[in-house]
Simulated assay, not measured.
Amino acid sequence: MEKFIDLHMHSLYSDDGEFTPTQLVEKCYDAGIRIMAIADHNSVKAIDEAKSVAKEKGILYIPAVEIDCTYEGINLHVLGYGIDYHDEDFVKLEDNVLNQELACSLKKLELTNALGFQLTKEDLDALSDNGVYTGEMFGEVLLGKEEYKDHELLKPYREGGSRSDNPFVNFYWDFYAQGKPCYTEIKYPSLKETIELIHKHGGKAVLAHPGNNLKGQFEVFDDMMKLGYDGVECFSNYHSPETVEYFYQKGQEYNIMTTCGSDYHGKTKPAIELGECRCIIDEHIIEEQLKSNHLI
């Protein structure tokens, strides 16, 4: 089946992204993607630049953001498509999260060293341009240090190891995600507030990679639907065929958009390529959904 849509990727305006907005658009063009959206974490800074370059390349560009939020103690990511991204609300959102992340970064360093390492701020500052240290950065620094080449904790992430397909992001999921030893809590908006924010600014709210965030509790999706989702990202690199099918059927049941996104970051997730979304339907159907929701 023809692949020409990718509605979820990250630029360097996400702390774990690698490429500039222009570079991402050029990569999409080379990959044959003709409908795209950069959805940075809690940031809309990439949009104007990307939109301009996409227009030159003949690519349909959808303004988007990926917002961290919570629902009954579960951390979620919600994609907002077609938003009026120039509004001050999005600047406030980014500033609020950034200030908390700066404080949490120092705590992450402390917790990481408690695992048996001796990292310094300088080690992390070599990768971070704003003082925010992500779990992926810790993974990259530790895996790059000669003195830890035989460290037992790092073996699964080295070549041939069970977690070596996307070593940096897998290190994040195993040590820095909710419930893990180096997790630091950030006060994110509620799911209700997030959906309301997206709707207030003319956007459509889509739950990102639910198979990841709702692992072991898919039934929660039915409760969350009462808050007004417009879509679900059922086609995702993170989803097994069974998970894809489950959320695709949920999309049909609730008559909401069923979207696709690679969640491409660059070096953070080397096994993921642009346009790889595990989509099991004709992408022209997704294109029609985008049209009927006035997103293209």
Rank of each mutant, 00 (worst) to 15 (best):
I67F: 11
P63T: 00
L102G: 02
L207A: 10
K215N: 13
L127D: 01
L115K: 05
L93K: 04
G216V: 06
L93F: 12
L295F: 09
F117L: 05
L12R: 13
D125C: 08
N213T: 15
N75L: 08
E152D: 14
L214K: 03
E283T: 08
F175P: 03
G266R: 10
H294W: 10
E136W: 00
Q178P: 07
F175Q: 01
L127G: 05
K180Q: 13
K291T: 06
E287Q: 14
G251D: 10
G231D: 04
H239C: 00
Y183S: 08
G135S: 06
P181F: 09
I281V: 15
A271W: 07
K45R: 14
N237F: 13
F218R: 15
L102M: 08
T112H: 05
S162H: 09
G135R: 01
N212E: 05
D6C: 08
P270R: 08
L115F: 12
K51W: 00
N99C: 01
I195D: 13
K226A: 15
N130G: 06
D87G: 01
S240E: 13
C104A: 14
L290C: 07
S52Y: 06
D125W: 06
N212Y: 15
H201N: 05
K57W: 01
L76I: 07
P156H: 00
I186Q: 14
A64F: 10
E185M: 12
G179P: 05
E276I: 14
D15H: 11
H10T: 10
Y246F: 15
N75V: 10
E242P: 01
V44D: 01
H239K: 09
S14K: 13
I285G: 00
A39I: 03
